[in-house]
Write a protein that binds this DNA or RNA. Structure first.
Lengths: 339, 339
DNA sequence: CACATTTGCTCAATCGATGAAGCAAGAATT
DNA sequence: AATTCTTGCTTCATCGATTGAGCAAATGTG
């Protein structure tokens, strides 16, 4: 096993020499279009066997350099710390592979600068197409790609210059808010405004969810308390801080909350347990996003689960069809039953 | 914005023509070693500005093809559905980028065939180095890579032919089992054998954890009940099934359990809630792996959190040093306090 | 048997970036 | 003034795979 040769990789030229044939014949055989190039089955078999024996691996760099399309498909994603993005990435890889595409994914830690840098790196790798997931500035990404002639598709957060696939945030939030309001009323008799916490006030999804939140209140005849709309960011610490400050300002905390992501929920739950508020009775929660353990936390939590399989089918539908019209596909999320 | 030109990418030749200079000068300027190549600052500036204006992006395929090292570093990972692998991937990306390396990651869905296919794909992309995380057959992966002269490092699960970085599974399991045994004794007075559930009986980590589990029993003077060592696989469904079958066989279920991963815990918890067993009193649980919401499930769960930052520092330490000696670095995991 | 067609391959240019080697003009040295 | 040195570039081969063009031999046709 200790190769004195620094393990020079086998190339089609090496195989050609071994087979007593030309590199172009080897290439034709190995990339499968040897019939088109009229190579005999005999030679094809010989080359194939030899390639296997020598452990030949195609040099993608050389191949892509020469070819028109790279068959590489890129995705940028904010984080890997929750089930939503986790399953997006898993699905993306599976569907890409099923189409003979090579997926490359990179996470941007919700950092706008990293987002652009990542997109640039993907362009350097000659991706045929880039899926921008939860991008803070999808249109900038789109512009970068467009200049290089690369298609983009927005996922999770929409952009204005490329097709987008997102959840029906309004509809999901409306229904989720309804349920939490109903749960509160059932327990406390009276209707009272809920807290909205987490997310960025500037991102499309959060705005739509707030809209659903408001409309559900209106439906129920409950006025929204503006001090209780806390779009403080997604990170657990931010949600935790917002809760602390809220508790400092008011003495009677809301009996129900709309929590905008499991990530924010992490902070909310931490605060609830640490602060001792709600010690005698937990608030009714609605969480926009799903996590299996959150579902086990108790019967006071409702969840909306975004339909990742459908969303990714929609993304690849757009990719396959080659459509570039600026549409926004809205995929209805799934209400997860309590318990 | 509607380019009639099919957006041919700008190359160094285009820039050379625009600048009235040669492609090699452009290349030298853009890859930063223009001082070494004695290009004047004036020309360098001109080229840099032009590149920016034209939105030039390096063609990595061409660059890598020519260069000795690709500066691409690969990782294969089983799944993205838990915090452990999620943070491994995030850390890996961050540390790779900090070193000027381009990370490519792919998940193998715990499928041995996909694992090899993924490794082959990485080789085709000329990775300089491959990190095999939780691989079912790290040595096969290593052999593939070695044939192409590519270094591998095993993470999470060790191999016998490449350096490995893993958790101290024995130590973590020993301590975790001790705590669960103690918690059970505290509540029920008597000592009784625990259930071990989840993981593959054949993988190194599970074997080591079972060893820790056994030794903690021995220490406490409690005999291990062999029928209660259920290495049924990681998937939630498998753990759930194992629980169901166990309950069919015996009437008095164990009052404490060692659950081998949060993923298996998902199945265990589901069964507990659905079956109605343990309705009057929850069992004491120890989970090998950490999740923020599991931590909130109640005070009956202890967790071992693998020290991902330290593990990845160790991985990159090996990469940076160029060491290839077959060592196993064991990183102590962290006990998470209840609550 | 002369010619056309088909079969089975090889040749050589190409993709874009890189860097060793080389060359011309100016500056410094003797 | 003749020489060496330095500066600031350019030329060209190269990485490995792909593919249009082309060519010789085998086969078919009249």
């Amino acid at each position: 096993m200790n190769r004195t040769t620094p393990a020079k990789r086998t190339t089609i030229y090496d195989l050609a020499e071994l087979a007593g044939t030309s590199a172009s014949a080897v290439s034709a055989v190995l990339n499968g279009n040897w019939k088109k190039r009229r190579i005999s089955a005999k030679l094809a078999e010989k080359i194939t066997k030899l390639a296997e024996e020598q452990g030949y691996a195609l040099n993608m760099q050389a191949s892509v350099l020469r070819r028109e399309r790279s068959k590489i498909i890129g995705m940028i994603v904010p984080k890997y710390d929750n089930r939503y993005f986790g399953s997006i990435v898993e699905q993306f890889e599976a569907l890409a592979r099923a189409r003979g595409l090579f997926p490359i994914i990179t996470c941007t830690m919700r950092d706008p600068a990293l987002e652009l840098e990542a997109a640039r790196a993907m362009l350097s790798y000659q991706v045929d197409c880039l899926v921008a997931t939860g991008a803070t500035d999808p249109d900038r990404v789109m512009d970068l790609c467009a200049a290089a002639g690369v298609r983009t598709i927005n996922l999770d957060l929409p952009g204005s210059r490329a097709p987008s696939v997102i959840s029906d945030n309004y509809g999901g939030a409306l229904e989720l808010t309804r349920r939490v309001l109903a749960n509160c009323e059932r327990e406390y008799g009276a209707k009272a405004p809920l807290l909205f916490i987490g997310g960025r006030g500037t991102d499309h999804n959060t705005m739509e969810r707030v809209r659903g939140f408001r409309d559900a209140h209106a439906e129920a005849g409950v006025p929204v308390d503006e001090a209780l709309v806390q779009t403080c960011g997604y990170a657990p610490e931010k949600a935790e801080n917002a809760m602390r400050q809220l508790a400092e300002r008011t003495s009677n905390l809301p009996r129900g909350m709309f929590v905008n992501s499991t990530i924010s929920l992490e902070g909310v739950m931490r605060w609830i347990r640490r602060s001792g508020h709600y010690a005698e009775r937990m608030p009714h929660l609605g969480c926009f996003d799903w996590d299996p353990f959150v579902a086990m936390l108790g019967d006071h939590i409702e969840m909306v689960r975004q339909d990742v399989p459908k969303m990714l089918e929609a993304v690849f539908g757009i990719i396959d069809s080659g459509a570039t019209d600026i549409t926004v596909v809205q995929v209805p999320p799934i209400m997860e039953k309590i318990g």
